[in-house]
Amino acid sequence: MIPITAVKQTALSLMDKAAIDIPDDYLNGLQKAADAEDGDLSSFVLHAMLENYQAAKEDRRAMCADTGVPRWYVKMGNEARVEGGPVALEEALRGATAEATDGVPLRPNRVHPLWRTDHNNNVGLNAPEIEYSFEPDGDWIDITTVHKGGLFGSDYRMLFPGDGIEGIKRFYLDCLVAFGKRGLACQPAIIGVGLGGSKDTTMVLGKQAACLRTVGDRNPDPKVAELEMELMELGNSIGMGAMGFVGKSMVIDCHVECGFCHTGGMPMSVHAFCLSSRRAVARVHADGRVEYRTDPNWFTPYMRRETVGWAPEAESLKKSV
């Protein structure tokens, strides 16, 4: 049984880490981009950002004052049991969000869309979002918090099979060019692309691809992996860098996730996870032990399964044929 106090304490600590510590994979990616960037202004911006991450870490202050809209991703091992059940788990995550908003402090960004009511704690109607996934075996839960900005850099479009890869590229470029001007997307960013699924799933997959996969990670489908590389290069050949200034660093990495969709369609979403790519992860074990990391490892082979049941041996047999 996973103690609920361990869940709450871990969640609080994750809120703090996400807001303050830039994940290493993104930091290394940005460092490489900064080394390669030759645009005067773009280069100045990237070096200022690198200095900013250092300042955040040293002072233990939020790296960006727009601390985004904090949300949660929970992956549960099939044998995991949380003390108090799912209701207690959600209360712990909502509680940690509220406490950390005051404690770090974060900006209380969440308001009612019409009345603009602000609880000053980032908790309200349908906020924070908590998404779940599951994993065979395992008596642990993985808790991930992502603090993504909420205004610019994402879009959705219904494409059709006839639009093809050329249509995918067009919409991808449209998003990057539109949101890249003046740097509204806060690039260079990890770009997530959702392809297929129902419309809502398209958006979810693209967002998860941007926020829950690390720089350098490739889709296990070699053709999708190739598309990821191609889209990354395409984004970096726009001639635009940080803040929309002339430059070549637009995309730190590109992740594509696919879902089966209606036979007549090819829905697509694009998401930019900004210069402050805030994510933090921990595994809480049944005995209360906690291990922190920055890779959510969200898209496991089980998550990407295509079959009715889960039989990893049969899967690997099928692939080797």
Binding site: V45, A48, M49, A56, R61, C64, A65, C186
Partner: peptide
């Protein structure tokens, strides 16, 4: 600058 030199 950036945007997001919030800590600086």
């Amino acid at each position: 600058v950036g945007y997001g030199t919030g800590a600086l």
